[in-house]
Design a protein around this nucleic acid. Structure first.
Lengths: 123, 123
DNA sequence: ATCTATTGATTACATATGTAATTCTTTGAG
DNA sequence: CTCAAAGAATTACATATGTAATCAATAGAT
């Protein structure tokens, strides 16, 4: 699996939102949110390319970058390994933590409920 | 918040399971699960101490280590920051990923259901 | 009293990560 | 055709992490 660092993940997220994008566009997006130097972002694009987390096609003198890993796939694997590490693979205790901290809005609860209803249907 | 690395987390887990424990005991526990050198584990105990993730009391020539951060607290904060980073703070999509992958057992679903029932009661 | 085994402390070294600066290439301006 | 601006590639450097080895202190054996 592709290992993406914390900072690199933000770059991925920009590309997941919309792709392909030029380095210039990516830099512009990220600088609205973070205080990162353009050079820093270029480095991350480079490392992500090496890790094969993103790809590019040449567009004249510059590149157009795209994710090589879908957000879905990444979220899925990261979630699983996280829950594995912290909760021995059980997702319920994690949800319980959110519940305890009052981090679940009414709509969250509704969504969870309908998700579960769907799961029960399947059986 | 205390930042604990991947490998260090395994040491924490041994201490969360039971504490206080001597380095010797901790090493024994971890070596059943991992192929780590005793020196490696000592290093991690040292780093965790510096990070104030664990504490110790002298017991003759050796130390007895204990967690300085509860498992609850750690799980809570790590879960929140994880869900924040990957799912913009929403826990439901994470659960949905587990569901899709068939990672939810019947008992998981039951637990989630009763958890939600409890939440709805509160309102 | 001296020596050795044990335990913690310090040092080591490679790779990863955050954060850039510098260099190399290429293309458009003049 | 020449040169400077712009983009990518390479290099840099500090801290974190994985993985130990070495050093130092001390308690128990002889």
């Amino acid at each position: 699996m592709v290992e993406v660092s914390n900072a690199e993940l933000h770059v991925m997220q920009v590309l997941w939102k919309h792709s392909p994008q030029s380095a210039q566009e990516i830099v512009a997006q990220l600088q609205q949110e973070f205080d990162w130097h353009e050079k820093t972002i270029k480095t991350m694009l480079n490392r992500l390319t090496q890790k094969q987390a993103i790809t590019f096609t040449k567009q004249g003198r510059s590149y157009l970058y795209s994710p090589a890993v879908s957000q879905q796939a990444y979220q899925q694997q990261a979630s699983q390994s996280f829950v594995q590490r912290l909760f021995a693979g059980k997702v319920t205790p994690l949800v319980a933590h959110f519940a305890e901290k009052g981090k679940l809005s009414d709509s969250d609860i509704d969504e969870l409920k309908s998700l579960i209803a769907k799961l029960e249907d399947k059986q």
